[in-house]
Design a protein around this nucleic acid. Structure first.
Lengths: 137, 137
DNA sequence: TCTTAAAGGAGAATTATTCTCTAAAAGCAG
DNA sequence: CTGCTTTTAGAGAATAATTCTCCTTTAAGA
């Protein structure tokens, strides 16, 4: 992805632009499928060898806070990061640990309609996330 | 829950019956809403003060392996345990961290039918879990 | 009762993530 | 462009949930 675009994503959120932030954000886009912090650190160090681990975590948290990326939790206890901050579902393969984003407006509409009709008492729904577990083949 | 019933759950899975396993399983049933390992340790120590932390974790993992309970992952990185090993969905309140099981056969049927029609290529669905985020009130 | 494999105890080890404290640098005003 | 202020980065220690190790104890079938 172009540097200017990445820069604009940061400035667009009122975040200071630093090389570290640029490289981390670029890494997440380049490592297409939901990298771990470790993946991001390794990738980033190819182009910026001295970046500190703590810095990467700080940058990642800042990006999540500002909705530039998302945090994804998997079965084992390692966070994964999702380049896409939009609402979406996940296809998840427990064996290979592969994650793929899954968008589907029709599904969202269906669920919304369904829960509107059901009207769960004592609970106000804010968001519905569907995790589709299975196997990639 | 009656001791005999708990004992039968263990023997039914071919697991050895030990006081530690009995007390841990009882704790999960008593602490009704998705306790953490720490909750379980505290509760268990009221009746069995010397149980080791490592033992509780070992018992919990054994129970999960044998489908007597389920592991649930939340936003922060603490595991929660679910007394109910059946397939079900969750209502989750991020603020209070409260979790409530949500069963709905109609929803399951709806989703099954929907994904059968959609037929995602390159992926074989095994299970669909819906996480309903929002607020209890 | 004896035997053996499985389970428990205690505490060290692991490991992802956060924290702390100081030095550096981004971004704005002049 | 220069200096000022606040945010950010670096380095490594700290944290905390969970697992591991090693040895002892116990469950349960013969």
């Amino acid at each position: 992805m172009d540097n200017e675009i990445i820069k604009n994503k940061l400035t667009g959120k009122g975040l200071k632009v630093t090389p570290q932030r640029m490289f981390v954000l670029e890494a997440i886009y380049a490592l297409d499928n939901h990298p771990t912090a470790e993946n991001i650190i390794d990738y980033t160090r190819n182009v910026y060898p001295h970046i500190a681990i703590g810095t990467v975590y700080k940058v990642l948290n800042k990006l999540v806070e500002n909705d530039l990326i998302k945090k994804v939790k998997t079965e084992n206890d390692v966070m994964r990061y999702d380049a896409n901050p939009e609402r979406h579902h996940h296809l998840y393969d427990k064996e290979s640990e592969a994650i793929q984003d899954y968008y589907d407006e029709e599904l969202d509409a269906l669920l919304k309609k369904y829960f509107k009709r059901k009207n769960i008492t004592g609970f106000t729904i804010e968001e519905i996330v569907v995790q589709i577990n299975g196997k990639f083949n």
